[in-house]
Design a protein around this nucleic acid. Structure first.
Length: 974
RNA sequence: GCCCAGAUGGCGGAAUCGGUAGACGCGCUGGUCUCAAACACCAGUGGGGUAACUCCCAUCCCGGUUCGACCCCGGGUCUGGGUACCA
């Protein structure tokens, strides 16, 4: 009987469905294990061979854990909202729901062929009301919460309102957009609208006026991680900066917790590093600068407090509110021209063109340490969104300030002993501080009302600072680190500013001007947003006549005619009924892609629950994800957002764990292996790869599916495209050899390999094992169908242990021999260890070696074959089920191999009788000798010394040293 | 620019603690079977010299530590990824 994979796979896939083999439920008698894949966006192109890589890896692990007795949750679903379906809808009028559904069905069909152990009863789709109900609910909870810094936790906004009513902002330590100060009386005197607007400053989901990445071509805003090199990640359209009122999530409030949490989870160091950089914690100081001839003051942030004596100018971001206040009348025109110019530049232009630009505001700031008046400039190298949007420039020790100073001829004052700043700035934080304090700089006038900090000649007297500011500061002689600390302390003690930690992580912009996303459960009354009653959720996405923005530039939901909220009835009603008394307009924006993917892992725990995101019981049992498998491209998007989202839900008591994904494995990308043919220029003649050097040729991509082992199927090529019908070929050795290259797998390179085709030709088990055999899961590697025969051959060999070529069923109840047991126990040890470390490729090698050995040994033992079948079940589940069934044809009750207990190896079978030692002289290996496994060092040494071959190498010398490494090597140093 | 990861045969990749390279598979070469091809099976396969045991050279480059280095340390080259005026 042949290994008929088609029949076997069909049979078992059917049986798994019928018997609901992979259905899981909470079971208090078993320990849980939660395996999760990053759910796919169902694109129109279907799956290629790279997509299932991670799913196969996690499926193997899930099956392995199940065999170890764990209750394994291994769900799958679809991230169903997204731009491509909407773009397609705009072009064709086809409703995104329709295309999405069709794509999902295609994905499902493809996935089902591969034999995953998913519990499909738990499937989620982010675009379904039953799912996005809870996305909307979470948003409402964020709207109704603020973040308390002192208790490090989200709190109900009502607590804050109470605090304001009693104490105003006094004693408040909370996350906020800007620092507000008001008294209880002032709060109580505010109108409803004023109070609501004030609360926006604190809510975790808030409506904020922010600079956004506006993509005119897509007609929407994009999050920072959706913008790559100044163009949109999807489509590659230009992006400009624009100020808009948008929903935002106060992710920044959680910055410290997001950073600290990284220490508690089992992710790769490089991914943690990426997140650390993205969060970007920096410790520094905020220092106040007075404006000369004015009572104005402004604050800057610096991490280099030690460079206070090197400040020679100040710079404001063009978008800073200070610009208008500090621009003098005579500079006004020039400043406005500059602002206009910078506003017009797209993000991309700014990146491409790093010219130094800037304009003088006309005002001066007074350095509180030197009393000098330094000019205030405006330049786009300072960002409005970071720190305070204003900096003190120290050209000697910051390369950007240096470039600016050189360009505009501003003074440069070095502050580190022996540093040379004639050509470039000295940015390193090492060396000994000098010039602090120092003599006044001749080109920097003294500010009014501030005493001089002059040092006369060699007199090292302290500089006197602004009146009432106490003792001066001496940094000279300190290391930079010490100087930073000393200055911070001084700043704090003298009320010049405060010590401050800043984060690079920004709040997430949560509005998208799109149709195909979750609608906000929000209506507007008097210009202020209100949440619709949570008992009325979900608020379903309305139908629209077209998917483009309206003529007035409103988002696509502006096209909906039934998109108003009747507060009395608690339902969506026709827009014509809007009276702003009982019926109000609904929000027209929708939520971004990451909204639906931020808590889906929680929903899998209890996917059909209509009363809550999930029950406390389900949450208590499943806790969090034990193993999360997905691509590294989500490092600064999804993996930040969902950690934030989970922490918020944790604060609410909904999620049980502070971190959602305990262990994370990043699967590598599968690249395509493209093939090329070489057309001789201006002809229809193609020359084989080895001879192309003799002609002037154009390489052309050729469909990899008509190439086998780099040999072109010439007839198939002629049939591929009409223009090649009469193509001619110059062959080598009678074959047309193609060139190849590793590229991204994509249609345009004709290198897409479809898993269905592989399954059809070789079977799912071969596909699964081959994908794992290609190399380590974490590594990117090219797909090369050529190697697949080896794995397929192995499965046939495995089958051959059960059926001879003459269709004789081989296994019998003969006792296993010592060699067979040794062989199989070695395998148990190897495979168990490999699965734990995701080294599936080496496990598969071990399987091949073991099966070959068993064939050599003519193994017939059911005992051994049962163990072998158990071990291979996670890798090749269909075949294993079939073999398992055959092994139980003796009348024993047949259960699925999925529940076959994972075996433990017995060390006693693995013990070797003798051990090989390599004998080396002066580190050069010469020969080997066998010793009994329990021989001691003294015996080994004396035997080696007496050995004839050794004597040849020793040549009568007395060895200086003899090193015996257990079971490996004897080295004799002469 | 900064941060991270990596570099081993013709190819994908092995090598647990530093233990004397190249597991396993592909490809290639030769053989068996066949009218022939495919499949299958057997043998060989890092490079170089030799009739041969054996020997020499080989894990990106240079240097170091060690009896011994793909592995540890220092310097450099290249490739991939992240990030980009974050003060």
């Amino acid at each position: 009987m042949e290994y008929n994979f088609r029949e076997i796979e069909k049979k078992w896939q059917q049986r798994w469905v019928e018997q609901k083999t992979y259905k899981v439920a909470e079971d208090d008698t078993k320990k849980k294990f939660y395996v999760l894949n990053m759910f796919p966006y169902p694109s129109g192109a279907g799956l290629h061979v790279g997509h299932p890589l991670g799913y196969i890896a996690s499926d193997i692990y899930a099956r392995y854990k199940r065999q170890q007795g764990f209750n394994v949750l291994n769900p799958m679903g679809y991230d169903a909202y997204g731009l491509p379906a909407e773009q397609y809808a705009i072009q064709t009028g086809q409703h995104p729901a329709v295309t999405t559904e069709a794509n999902i069905n295609r994905y499902r069909e493809q996935l089902d062929k591969i034999g995953f152990s998913f519990d499909w009863d738990r499937e989620v789709r982010t675009c379904e009301p039953g799912y996005y109900h809870w996305t909307q609910w979470a948003f409402q909870q964020m709207f109704g919460s603020f973040y308390c810094n002192s208790c490090q936790k989200a709190q109900p906004i009502s607590k804050l309102v109470e605090h304001f009513a009693q104490k105003g902002t006094e004693g408040l330590d909370v996350a906020q957009s800007e620092e507000l100060n008001f008294t209880a009386d002032e709060w109580n005197a505010m109108t409803e609208k004023e109070q609501q607007e004030t609360l926006m400053n604190y809510r975790i989901a808030y409506l904020g006026e922010t600079m956004v990445n506006w993509c005119p071509a897509l007609g929407t805003v994009l999050a920072n991680d959706e913008v790559v090199d100044g163009v949109s990640e999807r489509g590659g359209f230009p992006v400009v900066q624009k100020k808009m009122r948008q929903w935002c999530l106060r992710v920044s409030a959680y910055a410290q917790r997001l950073l600290d949490g990284l220490d508690k989870i089992d992710w790769t160091e490089s991914l943690k590093e990426t997140q650390k950089n993205w969060i970007g914690r920096s410790e520094g100081a905020e220092v106040q600068f007075r404006v000369k001839d004015s009572d104005m003051e402004f604050t800057i942030f610096t991490t280099r407090a030690d460079t206070m004596f090197g400040v020679t100018f100040m710079v404001l971001a063009p978008e800073s509110e200070l610009v208008a206040q500090l621009t003098t009348a005579e500079q006004k025109e020039e400043v406005e021209a500059y602002l206009d110019r910078t506003k017009k530049r797209t993000e991309r232009e700014r990146i491409a063109d790093r010219k130094v630009t800037g304009v003088f505001s006309g005002s001066y700031a007074i350095n509180p340490f030197t009393g000098e008046a330094v000019p205030i400039w405006i330049s786009d190298y300072v960002l409005a969104g970071y720190g305070t949007g204003a900096i003190m420039a120290v050209p000697a020790h910051d390369s950007r300030d240096y470039a600016f100073a050189k360009h505009f001829g501003l003074p440069i004052i070095p502050l580190v002993e022996g540093c040379d700043v004639s050509e470039e700035s000295f940015d390193a934080k090492e060396g000994i501080v000098c010039n602090s304090p120092r003599r006044p700089h001749p080109s920097l006038p003294q500010g009014e009302g501030v005493k001089t900090s002059a040092i006369d000649g060699q007199n090292n007297s302290l500089p006197s600072l602004a009146e009432g500011q106490g003792e001066g500061l001496v940094l000279n002689g300190l290391t930079i680190k010490e100087a930073i600390a000393a200055t911070k302390k001084y700043v704090k003690e003298h009320g010049l500013g405060r010590v401050k930690v800043n984060f690079r992580l920004r709040d997430a912009i949560f509005s998208r001007q799109r149709y195909w996303g979750e609608p906000f459960p929000v209506y507007y009354k008097d210009g202020m947003p209100y949440m619709i009653d949570s008992s009325k959720l979900p608020l379903e996405l309305p139908e629209v006549s077209k998917f483009l923005p309206t003529e007035t530039g409103e988002p696509p939901l502006g096209n909906a005619t039934k998109w108003a909220w009747d507060v009395q009835k608690g339902e969506v009603v026709d827009n014509t009924l809007i009276d702003n008394v009982n019926v109000f307009p609904l929000e027209l924006n929708t939520m971004p892609g990451f909204a639906g993917s931020s808590a889906y892992y929680l929903r899998y725990m209890d996917p059909q629950n209509d009363n809550a995101l999930l029950s406390q019981k389900a949450a208590g049992y499943w806790q969090n994800v034990d193993l999360y498998v997905g691509g590294t491209e989500h490092a600064t998007g999804h993996l930040i957002y969902s950690r934030f989202w989970n922490k918020f839900l944790y604060d609410l008591g909904v999620s049980m764990k502070d971190e959602p994904f305990q262990k994370l494995v990043n699967q590598g990308m599968i690249q395509g292996r493209s093939n090329f043919v070489y057309r001789i220029k201006d002809t229809n003649t193609f020359v084989s790869h080895g001879l192309k050097g003799q002609y002037d040729v154009t390489p052309l991509h050729v469909d990899v599916n008509i190439v086998s082992a780099d040999v072109l199927d010439v007839e198939a090529f002629k049939a591929w495209r009409p223009e090649y019908n009469d193509a001619e070929f110059i062959l080598e050795d009678g074959k047309y050899i193609c060139g190849w290259a590793v590229e991204k797998m994509s249609k345009s390179m004709f290198n897409v390999v479809n898993p269905d085709m592989i399954v059809e030709k070789y079977g799912a088990d071969t596909l699964r094992m081959y994908e794992m055999f290609l190399g380590p899961v974490e590594q990117s590697k090219p797909w090369d169908t050529n190697g697949i025969d080896g794995v397929h051959r192995f499965l046939k060999k495995l089958w051959g242990l059960f059926y001879s070529r003459t269709d004789e069923y081989l296994p019998t109840d003969v006792p296993a021999t010592k060699e067979e047991l040794k062989c199989i126990h070695k395998l148990i040890k190897k495979v168990t260890g490999d699965i734990e470390t995701f080294s599936y490729n080496t496990s598969i090698s071990a399987f091949m070696i073991c099966v070959n050995e068993l064939i050599q040994l003519k193994c017939r033992s059911t005992e051994v074959l049962r163990l072998l079948t158990t071990l291979i079940a996670p890798f090749a589940p269909h075949l294993a089920e079939e073999l398992w069934e055959m092994l139980h044809s003796d009348g024993l009750p047949v259960t699925s191999v999925c529940d076959a207990k994972w075996p433990e190896y017995n060390e006693s079978y693995l013990v070797e009788d003798t051990v090989k030692y390599t004998i080396s002289f002066n580190g050069k290996a010469r020969f080997t000798l066998d010793f009994p496994a329990d021989a001691d060092n003294a015996t080994i040494e004396s035997t080696v010394m007496a050995d004839e071959q050794s004597q040849k190498w020793i040549e009568g010398k007395t060895p200086k040293k003899v090193i015996i490494v257990p079971k490996k090597i004897v080295n004799i140093v002469l």
